[in-house]
Simulated scan of single mutants.
Amino acid sequence: MSRLESMRRRLEAQIDGLNWAAETIRDVAGDVLEMGLGNGRTYDHLRQELPNRRIWVIDRVLQPHPSCVPPEENFLQGEADAMLAELAQRGTRMALAHYDFGFGVKEKDVEEGAKLSPLIAPLMVPGGLIVSQQPLTGFTQVSGPDTIDPERYLFYRS
C-alpha cells in the first residue's frame, strides 16, 4: 500500500470514528477535547458534528488554517502534561477526547500515550469516549465502527 493510500485510509477511519463517537456521546454531558490541533481539520470536523459543545484544544503551537483557529479561551498552548493538569485544576470534564499527539516514531508515540493517559483520565466523565491513533492505558477499550480496522484507530470508554 502506498503512503497516499495509507493516508486516505487513515482519514476515512478518522472521519468514521469521530462521527461514531459524536453520535455515541450525544446524551453524555461534558465538553470535548482535541489533543493536537495541527492544521485544524479534525477540530473543524468536531465543530461541525458537535456544534453545541465547548471544544478545548491543546497544542504546542497555534498554526492551523485560518478558518480553524479555536477561540482564545478554549486554546491551551504548551506541553500536553501541563495543559492537561491545568484543565483538571479548572474542573473541566470531557464527554469526548480525541488524542492526536504523535512524533511519528511508534515507540515514542506509545511511551507518550502511556505517560499522558493518567492525566487524561481525571478529565473524562463516566461513560465518556476517547478516540486515539495511539494506544492509551487505564481505559476500557471498546469496539468502534465496523468500517475501521481495529489497529488503525482505538476507542476507549472512561
Rank of each mutant, 00 (worst) to 15 (best):
M1Y: 14
R3N: 14
R3K: 05
L4Y: 15
L4K: 10
E5T: 08
M7F: 15
M7G: 08
R8P: 01
R10P: 01
E12M: 08
I15G: 00
L18Y: 01
L18W: 02
W20S: 02
T24M: 12
T24V: 04
I25S: 12
R26C: 09
D27S: 15
V28C: 13
A29E: 09
G30D: 08
G30P: 07
G30Y: 08
V32Q: 05
E34N: 13
M35R: 05
M35L: 14
L37G: 01
L37C: 00
G38Y: 02
R41L: 13
D44T: 00
D44R: 03
L50D: 12
P51T: 03
I58C: 06
V61S: 12
V61A: 12
H65M: 01
H65C: 04
P66F: 07
S67P: 01
C68K: 00
C68V: 02
P70W: 03
P70H: 11
P70D: 05
Q77V: 09
Q77L: 13
E79S: 05
E79T: 05
D81I: 05
M83G: 02
A85Y: 05
A88R: 07
Q89A: 11
Q89T: 07
G91P: 13
T92Y: 08
M94C: 15
M94K: 07
A97H: 10
F103N: 05
V105W: 13
A114P: 01
A114W: 01
K115P: 01
K115L: 11
P118C: 03
A121Q: 13
A121I: 08
M124I: 06
M124Y: 10
M124G: 03
V125S: 08
G127A: 12
G128S: 08
G128Y: 05
G128H: 06
G128T: 00
L129I: 10
S132A: 08
Q134L: 12
Q134E: 11
P135Y: 04
F139R: 03
F139H: 09
T140K: 11
V142H: 11
V142L: 13
S143H: 06
P145M: 11
D146W: 06
T147D: 07
I148C: 10
E151C: 09
E151H: 15
E151Q: 12
R152G: 09
L154P: 07
F155T: 05
F155R: 04
S158W: 13
